[in-house]
Design a binder for these strands. Structure first.
Length: 124
RNA sequence: CGAGCUGACUAGAUAAUCGCUGCUCGCUUAUGCGGGUGGAGGAAAGUCCGGGCUCCACAGGACAGGACGCCAGAUAACGUCUGGGCGGCGCAAGCCGAUGGAAAGUGCAACAGAGAGCUGAACCGCCGAUGGCUACUUCGGUAGCACAGGUAAGGGUGAAAAGGUGGGGUAAGAGCCCACCGCGCAAGUGGCAACACGAGCGGCAGGGUAAACCCCGUCCGGAGCAAGACCAAAUAGGGAAACACCGUCCACCUUGGUGGACAACACGUGGUCCGCGCGAGUUUCCGGGUAGGUUGCUUGAGGUGCUUGGUGACAGGCAUCCCAGAUGAAUGAUUAUCCUCGACAGAACCCGGCUUAUUGUCGGCUCACACU
């Protein structure tokens, strides 16, 4: 299976983001990142990034963070259920280096998956 | 070698694996796959100027407002750049300067000081020739007083007290006179000009501030790619047509329709009345238009090389190249190796500048020391 990341796997419109923010059934938080997620019906996970200028001031840093997050998502997508995920920046993100960020993201994907499995019986 | 000035260039490298994206070719087909090829910066930044482009307004002028401000040139244009002048800083290489006008008008200047711009001002000091008073007198004057007054040399105040030094002169002084320096005017000479030099003349200016108002000159319509153009779901609403429906009265005729008039009730608005709106649906079409999509979107005041003109900014010619175009927003991630261990930092319509941040390397020049 090709480990790709195409436009199909992204949240593209304001409406799609709005839906995740409104429902936010699943959450996973640490001091660098906040992940919100909600089940979708497209059959695969999708990713949306919301890295605020307020949290990450320099454009270079924002780009770097988004690239690492996307790449990590790409590598873990086959392990994730059909949910829409929005990743938000928190204040510590600027001081997190690439290796740490990869480790943290791996844990976030795992946790989201576990919570989705738990919530399944309640929301069929 | 040390201190400094200045001009260029540079922006970790290589390999493997996994990705993103523009173009292109092929196969597939309506979406993918494969091959090839391109994919951040010198500041992409701050958004401080100047243009192109687009729409609106006007196509003319005036006023207001704003920006700029030595001269000449470069340029599409500029507040930029080049060359030059003037002033300042530095031993020097060099660097810095909103660098027009105070003979249009208005404003502003603390404190000190007797006095601060008018025709300048007597606090201390100096003088008191001349006039006045007193004393003496050989009747010619002499001495004293500091009253009238004179005086800008000296002291004191101040950022600044009406040019400086020397001499003459005087009662004491003073450009009052003279010499030199300074200053002003200026024939003329050089220069496109800014400006420079300056014969000669004048005993000698009346201040500063225009990044205070102001005056003079030059330039400027406004908004910005979320500009603008096109396609266009859902919902509500607008227009048109067809069908369906419609209380009472009157008129007409082909007894079921057409036309006209009038009324009642409910709801909304409103404190109330009047008034106004709406109560009447279904289907189709039309126009506007939101979400969303397409376009604008990268071939350009373009790069590179050679060459001609010019001190130079730059301009001309020839050859050659196509060198990011994303849109929740690509240009990356991981691993390994090497070294000098990698700073500042990410395109968003496009150019020309300015400013700020910052890594490394090289060249030229100046000064000091040492050596020859």
């Amino acid at each position: 299976m090709a480990v790709t990341f195409t436009r199909k796997q992204r949240l593209l419109t304001a409406a799609e983001f709005g839906r995740v923010f409104a429902e936010q059934k699943l959450r996973s938080v640490d001091n660098s990142l906040t992940l919100l997620a909600a089940p979708n019906n497209v059959g695969h996970p999708r990713l949306g990034l919301a890295i605020a200028k307020k949290q990450v001031r320099r454009a270079v840093d924002r780009n770097r963070c988004k690239r690492v997050i996307r790449d990590s998502f790409r590598h873990h997508a086959d392990q994730l259920p059909a949910i829409d995920i929005v990743v938000l920046a928190r204040s510590e993100l600027v001081r997190t280096d690439k290796r740490q960020l990869h480790d943290k993201l791996a844990r976030h994907w795992l946790r989201l998956n576990k919570r989705w499995q738990q919530s399944k019986p309640n929301n069929p």
